[in-house]
Simulated assay, not measured.
Amino acid sequence: MALDVRLATAPLSAAAELEAFLAGRTGDGAVVSFTGLARGVGKDGSIVETLTLDWYPGMTERSMREIAEDAAARFAVSDLVVVHRCGDIVPGETIVFVAAAAAHRRAAFAAADYLMDRLKTEAAFWKRETGPAGVRWIEPLDEDRAAAARWKDKTP
């Protein structure tokens, strides 16, 4: 089982990450990936020029790794990768890339879904949007918390 968890301070290429994840893979029947992009419009419809993800070195990586380790223990996957941006991100850039490889698709889909639900609500990032109207801090929404909560008692 390979577990690759990284924090990226510079723009990342989801295509390159996926290509590397797929390279040489012959024993799995499924790979599911997710790419999260920075939007240019906030939840209230305002223009977003920059999304900033602040992080605390060591703590943020640990929180990401714990989530990935939980996914690896919970689902029948052979490999997982989680790459999350931090710092300033402009609209259209990749914020997060996750991929899960498994013998069968359901485990790969569930692992990727689980990773994203927990990363969105539990990874140690502090998010803010900057636009013409100023700066505003972003918190997970109730629906984000509900999505993560559905995994509490659910087994794969």
Rank of each mutant, 00 (worst) to 15 (best):
E93S: 07
T9M: 09
A133N: 09
F97I: 13
A101P: 04
P140A: 10
L3V: 01
P156Q: 02
E19H: 11
T50I: 12
K43M: 10
G42T: 03
T121L: 14
A20V: 01
R25D: 10
V5G: 08
H104P: 06
L18Y: 03
I138P: 06
R106T: 10
G42D: 12
A112S: 15
W55P: 01
R136E: 12
K120D: 09
S46Q: 14
D54R: 15
F21V: 03
G92H: 05
W55S: 14
G40V: 08
S63C: 09
V96C: 13
R118N: 12
R136H: 14
E61P: 00
A14E: 04
D117R: 15
G58Q: 08
L18F: 07
R6F: 00
W151S: 15
A73F: 00
G36L: 14
E49C: 13
V77M: 02
A16K: 11
T121Y: 13
H104W: 05
G45M: 07
A2W: 02
K43H: 12
A124T: 11
G24H: 11
G29W: 10
S33D: 07
C86K: 08
R105H: 05
H84D: 05
T52F: 04
A73D: 05
K120G: 07
E143K: 14
D44Q: 14
S46G: 12
L22T: 05
A107N: 12
F109L: 15
G131W: 07
V135G: 08
G87L: 08
K152R: 08
P156D: 04
A76S: 08
D113T: 13
L51G: 04
K120P: 13
E66F: 02
W137P: 02
A15F: 01
L53F: 07
R106C: 06
D153K: 13
L51H: 01
G45I: 09
A123W: 05
V77H: 01
F109P: 06
L53M: 12
D153C: 03
P57I: 11
A10Q: 13
A111Q: 05
R150P: 07
G42Q: 02
A14W: 04
D88H: 09
A30H: 04
R6L: 02
A103F: 09
L80W: 00
A123I: 07
G92I: 05
G40H: 06
R118F: 07
L51F: 01
T52L: 09
A30D: 02
F125C: 09
A2P: 01
E93H: 11
R6Q: 14
A103H: 12
I89L: 06
E129L: 08
V77L: 01
A149N: 04
T130D: 14
M1Y: 00
A112I: 06
R106E: 11
L115M: 05
T130V: 15
A20Q: 10
W55A: 15
R25I: 10
G134R: 08
R65V: 02
A8H: 12
M59V: 14
F75S: 03
D153T: 11
P91N: 00
W55H: 15
A14D: 10
D113N: 13
A15C: 06
E93R: 12
C86L: 06
V5P: 05
H84Y: 01
G92Q: 04
A73S: 06
A111D: 02
M116G: 10
R105S: 09
A101M: 07
V90N: 03
R39C: 12
R65F: 00
